[in-house]
Design a protein around this nucleic acid. Structure first.
Lengths: 335, 335
DNA sequence: ATACAAAATGTAAACGCTTACATATTAGCG
DNA sequence: CGCTAATATGTAAGCGTTTACATTTTGTAT
């Protein structure tokens, strides 16, 4: 069933059918009805690929995210899709996984679909070496690239992010100010934002006059959703060093620390203070509830889409929009 | 940059370029290299829409899911995409939200993209009235429809699901057998599987000789991810009726009950037993850990994709594949 | 009724690929 | 070295839309 079949059955030309389908103003109501009836009768759906051939822009944005079952990324994607839909844009979501080669493949895949722009969700799309980021440069030559939670200075690449360094600095400083000087730092990503958080932590330690913090920085290499495995990891860390506070780069790691405390018979927050990051639903899941950093995801996604729409309509837009996160105090801290 | 430009630069015809792109066997190695060099030099990506026009099948499956930030749905989507990718199929994911009209729009959208099949993830795509499900009948006339966690008997519609009735019956019966006869039942969806779970609960109550269970069945109408709101809801329920056990149709509701217990000073599981459903990461997030029903999601998604592949290659496949869920006993129950 | 402008509709080219079929090249063999 | 068969490459016809431009119809003012 093609537009051609419809046009014959309705006794009009294909151009008229096309106009009806696209809501053109220049169709007589009686003709429109005649065509619509046939379309509905045969449950006709125009072929998106043929449309894609003719049209200049399909008003479509590609969204790439490593793993949509990650709470943070899932929420980000959700907000983005809502925003885009509200602005009349379709979105194409690809969950790429963390393998760099596969990521690159998906980028080409999405590029082949005539998207007007690409949003890379999460800082794991930005590497540390020039070479790793070459593919971003290549693509940005063709269409604008938006980064959520990462930053990369290059023409036609726009960044929206949380000041993870400063925010983590504030969070860690709050703990130091509360008198806790032996803090375990847990992280599981060396991505752009992962590095910023870590540097913020280090800066806070130095500012607090702490000098032996490096030995309490631990990289967790497993699946963060396996909370028991995280707890095991913290337990092993506790065998090596002592600590009275835990700061994690993600809520799930922080929850693992709370679990460890339960096993070890430590009271939270009296014996152990814990701060998470991302302010996900996990924060209210445990007892006591988890103090965490809210990185204003909804504000960020809104800003990102506004910037993108501006860029697409040819306006000059800020290359980087930075927001400050905020420590949400709950039960796992005394301060 | 089109195949035509590439062909000119490489000094061959467009057919040859096309053959190189599609990995055809009938190209001389020297020619292939010549073409590949140009392709890489100009970072050329073929236009997916033009390809879509020519090709019979694009080896693409559409996946529809209401909300990918729901833990259960997100995991299901993740497994499905992995399975499909491993079988050489591309997947097109659409998060539709819960509005029926928008859902229907997305179905047409995805249909327009020449997908070879459609997977509907989650039972909220199946309604209770004939009319609600009409759209499924219409679409199934064109391509096969796979249901995950729902069932609908119609030609070209294939279902893979957990026996929610029986599984919930087992779980509830276990609680009754343990001597708990006043059980609060929490649910938040009247979808296909939501109804099956509820009927399983009722059957277990009746089998246990309990007659006043209807007054302890509560429908929660809010956002299940707002755990505090769920706890509030349970608190209000407790003002109306008494209970020593809670069974929920989803882990997040169960967690809300655990939170309520904490507030009310009730010890879990001594004063209150709690059973969740879906065996999500939330189960290990709280203390004590949540007893929950595992519905074998990975097994289901595997079966679903195998069935789909079978159908697509013209084989006769089972219309319905049912798996039994399994109660995973953790700390919120004594039995 | 007639002429003319405005509105509605139709015609045909273009979009960038795939692929059946035609043609040219190569290799093997006597 | 010429012939044939096999292999590689080229040509051109679709695929199903959109849309500029041409044509027809309608409405309005004379």
């Amino acid at each position: 069933m093609t537009i051609y079949d419809i046009s014959k059955k309705a006794g009009v030309s294909i151009a008229t059918v096309s106009r009806v389908l696209n809501g053109s103003d220049k169709v007589r109501p009686s003709t429109r009805k005649k065509v619509m009836d046939i379309i509905e009768k045969y449950d006709y759906t125009p072929n998106a690929y043929a449309r894609g051939m003719g049209l200049q822009s399909l008003r479509t944005i590609g969204i790439l995210c490593a793993d949509s079952s990650d709470l943070f990324l899932a929420k980000a994607v959700y907000y983005l899709q809502q925003e885009l839909q509200a602005s009349g844009y379709e979105s194409l979501l690809c969950c790429t996984g963390y393998n760099p080669d596969i990521k690159r493949n998906y980028l080409h895949l999405i590029l082949s679909k005539k998207v007007d722009g690409i949003i890379l969700v999460g800082s794991n799309f930005i590497g540390t070496s020039e070479e790793e980021n070459q593919y971003i440069k290549d693509v940005s030559a063709q269409i604008p690239i938006m980064l959520l939670n990462a930053s990369f200075d290059y023409p036609n690449v726009y960044s929206t992010l949380c000041d993870d360094h400063g925010t983590m600095y504030e969070a860690a400083s709050a703990m130091v100010t509360a008198g806790i000087r032996d803090i375990l730092y847990l992280y599981n990503s060396r991505s752009y934002s992962g590095c910023k958080k870590l540097s913020g932590f280090r800066a806070a330690m130095e500012a607090g006059g702490i000098t032996d913090h490096e030995k309490r920085i631990f990289f967790y290499d497993g699946d963060p959703q396996q909370l028991d495995a995280v707890a095991d990891f913290v337990e092993r860390a506790a065998e090596k060093i002592s600590f009275h506070g835990v700061i994690a780069s993600d809520d799930s790691l922080a929850i693992g620390a709370v679990k460890y405390a339960g096993r070890a018979g430590l009271k939270v927050p009296e014996d152990l203070s814990v701060i998470g990051y991302n302010n996900s639903m996990l924060t209210t899941c445990c007892t006591p509830e988890l103090t965490s950093v809210d990185n204003r995801l909804e504000t960020q996604t809104h800003q990102l889409v506004q910037t993108l729409l501006g860029v697409l309509s040819g306006e000059e837009m800020p290359k980087q929009s930075v927001f400050s996160g905020k420590l949400i105090k709950r039960g796992t801290t005394l301060f």
